[in-house]
Amino acid sequence: MNCGETKQALVDLVLDEAGSEERKQIEAHLAGCAACRAELVNLRLTRKLLVQGLPQEEMPQRIAFVSGQAAKGGLRGWLGSRTFAIPVGVAVAVAVLACGLALARARLVIEQGRWELAFGHAPAATTATTKSAPAGTSVPLPAGLLTREQAQQLMAAAIRESEQRQQAASAARLEAALSQLDQRQRATLLALAGQMRYFEATQNVFYKEASRTRTALELVASRLPAEKGDRP
């Protein structure tokens, strides 16, 4: 094998498509070729990062077929009955809770040098002059261009505030959901557990989105001027 052939074969190797004969030939070539060894490192890195950069999400809901008579009729009526056997109250409570979390996304709007940091759904059309009130509270902003430090403090405070508000709201809704469970039979526990998995997954998504926003904000902050016009 020469370098050209090996380069192609290395992709197969990294993608688990190389046969044992091909592997032997690759090994033989790699033993005497630093360039192809470096290429292999590069290819492995690419796959590793691809996998790490595409994390697999939990499902919002597990899929299950109902057994018994349904099997014969081609499982008709199964679609659309995802919450089968789950008490409506609990399902609704959990759904409300999940929605609350989804609403908590932080939003940062930058327009013409103006900043708006808000939480909740964005107004349909955001303009720099008319700020319709978002679901959460906005953090008051100093006029003019922010310093990097100010921006970071502002973001940190706003995110912290939103998270605290969310945590309190989540706890209250969760308690409501659980109190309903008390009135039900134990048989519903299992179904609830399924719903709670969704709740957890939603929380994770929320966390991820919050972290993403924070990362994005940090990146933006890092591009702001370090000082505010004080320099000569």
Binding site: N42, L45, T46, L49
Partner: peptide, 17 residues
Amino acid sequence: FEQLKRVLGGDVGAKAA
């Protein structure tokens, strides 16, 4: 994969690793 390698396999990739 070759195109991804150009993005993920270079310096940026090494930084992440």
